[in-house]
Design a protein around this nucleic acid. Structure first.
Length: 138
DNA sequence: GCCAACGTTGGC
DNA sequence: GCCAACGTTGGC
């Protein structure tokens, strides 16, 4: 079981929209970055991820689960781009902002802090636990 | 809205 | 294969 983080601008695709898709989930399409794509190719069904609102909010707002492994991105004919499907699991009790993550020494090496432009990132088990703690989840 | 950081593209 | 130019992301 691995942990990940998915970034989305809420104006383009928000947590509420993700929740509205329910158990069916939604394609995480539109990624046009090799590193992000490679991360998605490495995902397994049942892997968990954080849902992060970039630009507006700048906070981790919820937890998602991978419900389909990588497959061609339906928004392009370019065979280079694959994506996974994810479904909402639960919101954090309180969002964990980027400022909080930056201020937390245990998250100093987290990709969210060190590699701001990567839209699909791996998260370590330790980082996962810290964000859950800050987010009010036992 | 600006701009820094970073990734990609294309000329050589 | 190098590197300058360009495009995009995302914090501020």
């Amino acid at each position: 079981m691995a942990y990940w983080l998915f970034k989305s601008e809420p104006d383009a695709w928000s947590w509420d929209q993700q929740v509205a898709r329910g158990a069916a989930g939604e394609e995480w399409n539109g990624v046009r970055n090799y590193q992000a794509r490679n991360n998605m190719r490495a995902m397994a069904v049942g892997d968990l991820g954080f849902f992060y609102h970039s630009n507006v909010g700048k906070a981790v707002v919820g937890i998602v689960e991978v419900c389909a492994t990588s497959h061609p991105d339906s928004t392009t004919d370019d065979p280079r781009w694959d994506c996974v499907d994810i479904r909402a699991v639960r919101p954090l009790k309180r969002p964990v902002t980027l400022d909080e993550a930056k201020a937390e020494p245990r998250l100093a090496k987290m990709a969210l802090v060190t590699n701001t432009r990567l839209s699909v990132q791996p998260v370590t088990e330790a980082e996962w636990a810290v964000i859950c703690e800050l987010g009010g989840l036992g």
